[in-house]
Write a protein that binds this DNA or RNA. Sequence first.
DNA 1: GCAAAAGTGTTTGGTCTACACCCATGA
DNA 2: TCATGGGTGTAGACCAAACACTTTTGC
Lengths: 229, 229
Amino acid sequence: MSQENLTKNIFSLSIPVLAMDIVIFTVYKWTLCLIMNQRTEDWSEKWKYILPGWVLRSWVSLEQNFDNILYNRTGIKWVYKEQLYTFWEVDRDPRWHVISVTYYALISSELFLKNVDLTKIHILDYSKIDEIQIWYDHKKIITYAKQRLDWKLEYTNIVKNILSTEFTLSQMQWVYETILWRKLDKRNFRKKISSLNILKETWKLDKSTNRPAMLYSFTDKELKIVGIL
Amino acid sequence: MSQENLTKNIFSLSIPVLAMDIVIFTVYKWTLCLIMNQRTEDWSEKWKYILPGWVLRSWVSLEQNFDNILYNRTGIKWVYKEQLYTFWEVDRDPRWHVISVTYYALISSELFLKNVDLTKIHILDYSKIDEIQIWYDHKKIITYAKQRLDWKLEYTNIVKNILSTEFTLSQMQWVYETILWRKLDKRNFRKKISSLNILKETWKLDKSTNRPAMLYSFTDKELKIVGIL
DNA sequence: GCAAAAGTGTTTGGTCTACACCCATGA
DNA sequence: TCATGGGTGTAGACCAAACACTTTTGC
């Protein structure tokens, strides 16, 4: 059944359409970015940015659905993800009642750029989202996802899902500073991170800067609750 | 359309059934309790406890749906509520794919007992849930709700939704101790609470104990993020 | 030799914890 | 007068924040 016939049938039962939308964050060129599609509205020529997503079918769990959307749009099989919230989406066509289960995800920009076809999906600067056209209430979802991301950065080791596997402490601090949008004290940051025992030295050096810096990696593979800031 | 015909039609489209289940907590006789219905399984005579809930229809927002379930089952029009999580429910009948949007809610036992018909809905001791029969994976939902409740107790003024409008500091401390299931130091508790400026004295006395105690009420109507413990 | 980023300690103020006794009332 | 729960303060440990200079390298 086509997507269009399906939604028509769903309307006739007077039940809501169940969909999934996903918010994918990355840090690219030291800037927090979103991965989004573009679509025209049916009744106009205007292009708008829209979160990757589609209408849910049976037989597939929510997590599997996420993975399918991700793979379909980016060619990537696994990223860190977390369920965000389930929204009742109000539409301008009053026959439409969409309930959208949303997830957010983190990806390192290296992994993203290696797999993706940039003619089909776009990477856009989070700080500019107020200036661009966004599909319906997807901006509300993005704002909610950003709040959750901020919180998780402060209280867990989630940041490892945005960093590449080896990184310097300065790079890690820059990621915190760009996402949380505030300056952190270098000495206090390093002291705190090293007291948490979540990193190990690789004893390799990053020579891309003037004075070479130690490269670190995370000791734990799993998400861990730790007060970072 | 009957609920049964509706679900049959939904299956034929091979989309998941969308439902809502709600977890209602209260503190009754200094014990954390759940408000649940009872239902027999179709193919057996066994009675099991089930969370209040039903299949979602169009035209009604998620929050409105919650209020409708609450009113239908308890006769109560408003309680504090929060969306919890959206679960993909695996059932023993493989044709069934249920996606359940869950909420949790808090209510003072006075308000609950004033409105409810106890032949239609039950109040049961949270600490005994391992000993009773619970519908499918509703226990998983309850456990998740309890974690969220614990967290919110520690970091917000959410406790006011379980207490009656005027209460003594000892009553407040008892609520924390029964829900979090640990002893708190009386002096430190009172010091912390009073430093937060979230309560005001009513200058009335509770004379039900030996030495009369000051009755307090909350200054803020809204949920507020404050580190309580 | 100088520009650029890496790396490193100490002091201070605030917050958390542990802990024990007197007070007001009802029975 | 005694049993019951209400109410109060202090000392030590720990944690967070503020703050500036030296080191290593590339150019």
